[in-house]
Amino acid sequence: MINFALLGAGRIGSIHGANVARHPEANLVGLYDPFQDNADRLSAELGCKQMTLDEIFSSDEIDAILICSATDTHADFIERAVANNKHVFCEKPIDLSLQRVRDCCVSVAATDCKALVAFNRRFDPNFQLLQQQCTQGVIGDIEMVNIISKDPSPPPIEYIKTSGGLFRDMTIHDFDVARFMLGEEIVNVSAHASCLVDSDIAKAGDVDTAMITLKTASGKLAQITNSRRASYGYDQRVEVHGSKGMLETRNINESSVTAHTATGVNGPKPLHFFLERYEAAYQSEIDTFIRSLKGETVSFPTMNDGLQALLIADAALLSYQQGRTVKVSEIT
């Protein structure tokens, strides 16, 4: 059995904690959250004890730590975990500072600890199958990737203020998907963005609508479309165009029933939000991490993947601010 501790008992911590607690080869020993109500609720739900940070990091009983806390704690918790010989499963982003992320990568590399950065979309069954078929050459040489990612509604303004902005918070998933599908590193970024959904987001210094074009050294292109508003549900689609054809993943709907009547053809909306849409992906990423800790050879997003996605995010922000194409190599 792999023994885990959970840092952060909010929404995403509840998901990962429950998936560990249900896993036949894992045990959730304890959790910590600075908000007592969260800690009380989730420890009761999952049947684990509450622990202090010192108890978690010093415990010989704990093999791995789920870091699902506030973004500004991630890097510190990663370094403290690996310094105590504990493997790490960390929510994105590692940090909002590139230098802090680089330092953290060095700290992890200096140990034998494994660290998974939780880009959950890589674990979605449909995204995985699409990427596998790309790798197998089903559509020949990859030429273009189109990614559509739209939330049903914006998050709370208080969240926006501390999120790092659209590119680092929302689009960072899509930057990772683009790298995953293209199989090459991004060298050029061109971003256009506006605030069309909620004027309070603009007042908070962020945008809510964006289109970003990415280019690799070999000339492959990716186009990302983001919005904080989709009245019809959580819009998550990927299309990959190659020299011999095209692959695509469509939205997962609330049901597969479509009504065909004299008044028209009507079908269900996409699943409403990420908790439902990526339920299988959340389970798969925990299972993959556990399998890796048991010695299996598996693939998962690494610290470097977290770094590369943040580099692209910062390039996108600079491109938007300066109204020009930015080379990723400019970002330091």
Rank of each mutant, 00 (worst) to 15 (best):
S194V: 00
L116H: 03
I2G: 07
D76T: 15
A115S: 13
S256I: 15
V145Y: 00
C105P: 01
S149W: 00
N3G: 04
V101G: 05
A217K: 07
D63G: 14
I15T: 07
D235Q: 11
C48T: 10
E158L: 13
S14G: 11
L96W: 00
S292M: 04
S227G: 13
K49G: 10
R102M: 12
V238D: 08
C134N: 12
D169T: 08
P152E: 10
S199V: 08
Q136A: 12
K269H: 05
L196R: 02
N84W: 06
T288M: 14
G183T: 10
G165R: 07
G242R: 04
A109V: 11
I56S: 09
I67R: 04
N120G: 07
V20W: 01
A222S: 10
I65V: 14
Q99Y: 10
R121K: 11
L275E: 12
L166K: 02
P93M: 10
S243F: 10
S231H: 13
I62Y: 00
E143F: 06
Y232S: 14
H260A: 11
L318G: 11
A191L: 04
C134P: 02
Q128R: 13
L196A: 06
T111C: 12
N84F: 00
F119D: 05
S107G: 09
V207G: 02
S59P: 05
S256H: 13
F77T: 08
A230T: 12
Q128L: 14
A39D: 01
L307C: 11
H241V: 14
R122I: 05
Q322T: 14
T111P: 00
F89D: 02
I147Y: 05
K161W: 01
H241Y: 09
V101K: 03
D287P: 03
A178L: 03
A21E: 03
I172D: 04
E239Q: 15
A83H: 06
T261H: 05
V88W: 01
S59V: 14
G165K: 08
F289Q: 06
I94Y: 04
A191W: 00
G164R: 11
A222V: 04
P24N: 11
F77G: 08
T73G: 04
R102E: 07
K269D: 02
A230Y: 03
V187R: 08
G295E: 09
A262I: 08
C105S: 10
H260Y: 13
A5H: 07
S227I: 04
A191T: 02
T297H: 13
D63Q: 09
E184N: 10
G137A: 14
P268D: 15
G183K: 13
L293G: 12
I2Q: 09
D103W: 04
I94M: 01
